[in-house]
Amino acid sequence: MTASPFQLLALQGDLPGRLAAGDPDVVRPLAAFTGHSGAGLVLGEESRPLRYDPAALATALSVRLPRWPVLTVSDGAGDHPYNAARRFLSVDHLTGGRSGVVFRSRGSAPRHTAERISVIRALWNSWPIHSLVADRGTGIYAHTEGIRAIDHQGRDFAVYGALDSPTSIQGEPVSLWYVATAEELDAAHGLVDLVIIDDPALLGRWAASAQDERPGLVASGIAHDDEATAELVPLHSAYELAEAVAGIPTAERVDAAPSLRAVLCLPPRSYDLSSKPLAFGVQHA
């Protein structure tokens, strides 16, 4: 792992509100980064109820602070997976593939959260963006034979699909699960890109699992022997934010900011829907 892990700056206290209002004391240090940095902003990693909707704030920030990766927290409360999938994928499109979603259970059973994540990820993969061709010669806008229903019939959700938004330019948004129990950690294997762990016992369980099968690690306030892809850093004030930002290394400026997946050196991900029904059958031009 790298010597200085990626910093996931979890904005808490009045920071989201000040950012939403465009408070210069909060915006200025973040806006100073013109290249891509070794950090991203986490929105919604606070106690409930929230004062700001993470997706709305993330999207506004994509205009005010372009190039900053944004990660939005999703606990699924009152939020159907179809609605969540399209909203978070919309954020991803509008940030140019620099977004991630932090899933949390907040009282739900691990299998419920796992099914929710699975449905959302399947939907994110149901309409390949490369199907969009806008061929003016043939009048074909999209090759629809690659679009698949997810046809999910699970214990807690039944979702047919496909999603009405094509896949992200980073394949799919980076997925993280803030795991609180061993059962959640086990369910996260093969399901998400990264797990966030704040419990040394869970870290031990993670470290003991097969390296090529386990999700990457985000350490939250625990020592991790340089094994973490990223660290979650809670920030409560403009002062803490400025301090944290001052310590972030800046990469060389590049014209096209890389995707969050690329910055985190995560492998491409997809969700195999090859056995699922075609959404529109085979197209005959």
Partner: peptide, 24 residues
Amino acid sequence: VLHNPNPRPGNPLEPITLASLITA
């Protein structure tokens, strides 16, 4: 819901998210 994007593509982004983009 996804309608067939041929011959007429629909809006592929969630409206309230788009609203936050536009008002910003």
